[in-house]
Simulated scan of single mutants.
Amino acid sequence: MLKNGQQLLSFFRQSTYLKLFLLAAFSTLLNACSTTPTISSAQISKPRVWQEQVQLTGRISIQYQQREQAETISAGFEWQQAAHDLHISLSSPLGQTIATIQQTPMGAKLEQAKQEPRTAADIEQLLADSLGWSIPVIGLKRWLQGFDVQANGKTVAVPVQDYFQLQAQGWQLQFVSWQEDAGVVHPKRIDLQRYTEELGEVKIRIVIDEWK
């Protein structure tokens, strides 16, 4: 296991421009949210359908506790989702791929430059084995589109309402803002928060830049 997630997160710290990037990225996340266009009432009332196949790009910022100090990591990401496959690519500020995570019917794989690939039965198990805790990737397959799953397994649309909150998979979610791309209404920014014994209070901020 990677103790406290340090080995998986270490690629964020290997470049000399990391600290400047973290500050710039975090500032950009905030600025992006403040310029989200207003969605009309007609768009809000229009029925929304969850899609098995989507592709989007955005930015992610993760805050956690390490030795009683607050730490932050940030990266760009590309999310390619299909019915039975998921591909996540994490990138540096210069656009270089620094890690990829794949889920197929055969299992999950994490690849980083100059390191042996890591595998597991599924993507959340892979992250749990690597980090000691897991980002809710399976939940994000619906949350990124503005949907959730009921106890009976039915997929339901989340209200298009700024700062709408719900609890799912042990996480407190807040759909901070929404946007519309090519007639599709979906979240612009989602905040997630939960407490873990390994990393204290974990806060994740996701901003979607482009819906393809």
Rank of each mutant, 00 (worst) to 15 (best):
I62D: 08
A99H: 04
S40K: 06
Q96M: 15
L29V: 05
R194E: 00
Q174Y: 01
V54F: 06
V207Y: 03
G5T: 13
L110C: 00
Q165V: 11
S92L: 03
K188G: 12
S92P: 05
W211R: 14
E198Q: 09
S130C: 08
R48T: 03
S40W: 04
L110E: 03
P117Y: 00
Q193N: 11
N31T: 11
P136F: 02
T16Y: 12
D209K: 07
F26W: 14
L9M: 14
R205S: 12
L94G: 11
R118W: 07
E201H: 01
T36C: 05
I60W: 05
I208K: 08
T97A: 06
L9I: 14
Q150I: 00
G170V: 06
P187N: 09
D148W: 07
H87R: 05
E201L: 07
E78H: 14
T38K: 13
G132D: 05
T196L: 01
G132S: 05
W211Q: 15
A42L: 08
A82C: 04
Q145F: 07
K114Y: 01
S15M: 10
I60H: 06
P136D: 04
T35I: 14
N31H: 07
L9Y: 11
L90E: 01
A82E: 15
L9N: 13
W143I: 03
D148F: 06
L18W: 12
Q172W: 05
A42G: 02
S10Y: 10
S10T: 11
S34Q: 11
Y195L: 03
L90A: 03
Y64H: 06
R189A: 05
L126C: 04
L86S: 02
F77E: 11
T104S: 13
T38E: 13
P159A: 04
A25Q: 12
S74T: 15
V137M: 07
I88L: 15
D191M: 08
D85K: 11
A83D: 08
V49S: 14
A120Q: 03
Q174P: 01
Y195K: 04
Q125M: 07
T100C: 05
E201C: 01
L86C: 04
K19G: 02
I208C: 03
C33M: 09
Q179R: 04
P187D: 10
D122I: 00
S177R: 10
I204K: 05
H87P: 00
L110P: 02
R118T: 00
E71R: 14
Q167P: 07
A157S: 01
I39C: 08
V185W: 09
G132A: 05
A157P: 03
Q7V: 14
S40A: 07
A32G: 13
G76D: 15
S92A: 08
Q69G: 11
A70V: 13
Q112N: 00
D129E: 02
L166R: 13
A113Y: 00
H87F: 08
Q125C: 01
P93R: 09
G95W: 05
G183M: 02
P187E: 05
Q115P: 00
M1D: 15
T104R: 09
F26G: 11
G200Q: 11
W50S: 06
K154I: 10
Q150M: 10
